[in-house]
Design a protein around this nucleic acid. Structure first.
Lengths: 130, 130
DNA sequence: ATGCTATTGATAACGAATCTCATTACCGCT
DNA sequence: AGCGGTAATGAGATTCGTTATCAATAGCAT
């Protein structure tokens, strides 16, 4: 028995908060959201939990502006996001063609276990008109 | 004439160093490389020059492990990357189909100025076999 | 050359993420 | 249920990449 994993309410809290979050969230914002909701969870714990989730494949992560953003990863509803860089509005988009492309391009170069980051940023209709 | 751009040896030094670098380089390593070569260039200047190059489309940038990496970018060659999450090896990939898809999906939802993040991670051939 | 001002660079400041370590509490065992 | 070991927690300190500050420097038009 090399490593033993324990179940704590903190891990579950992070998992829940992440699942209920829309789009990508930073560790810090998730932490303050939890605190605002009355939780006494620590920041370091949120970082650890998110790292574990990402490592276990239960969360997707991407890096933007020098910070890591996380998103709950539901295996049966893979999709990407169209995000407004002004107001943060996000629209879910499906892209089967892109999924196939990512897989094939990875295989083409001998890469295994492909995992892709595909997100489109822009200005939404409202923000474009201002 | 609202903004005037001046040519300094520092900018050229960064441009040259970046061009001569193999693969992606961090601002800090580029800075110490320049210092090691006898240059007295400052760190902040390297950051500024790299930011300008990236903004002007003369350099590609990606974020990994919380730091930004840069590489000289030959103009008119927009491409994405296939990155090994183990050793960091990167392969340039072209994806015209994805470019078109990003544009159309953005327009479809009323988004303007589309800008997309498309990167594929995986294990390269060498790292897969270990 | 001269004046204006963009640029530089040493350093301070900032922020995200990690580390430390004493305390807590999960979980197998009896 | 009670115990013991030990993984996990969390407040604070620390690391590290990046940006801001601001006096000094140097590019460029005249």
């Amino acid at each position: 028995m090399v490593t033993m994993k324990r179940n704590t309410w903190q891990r579950e809290a992070v998992r829940n908060a992440l699942t209920q979050s829309e789009g990508f969230v930073s560790a810090q914002s998730l932490h303050s959201a939890l605190r605002d909701a009355g939780s006494s969870i620590g920041l370091a714990t949120v970082y650890r939990a998110l790292g574990d989730l990402a490592g276990a494949g239960d969360a997707d992560s991407l890096q933007q502006d020098g910070e890591s953003l996380f998103r709950a990863c539901t295996p049966d509803s893979h999709h990407h996001h169209l995000i407004c860089r002004e107001c943060g509005t996000t629209v879910e988009i499906k892209a089967d063609a892109v999924e196939q492309w990512a897989k094939s391009v990875a295989a083409e170069h001998g890469f295994t276990e492909p995992h892709h980051i595909v997100d489109v940023f822009g200005l939404c209709r409202a923000c474009s008109s201002t």
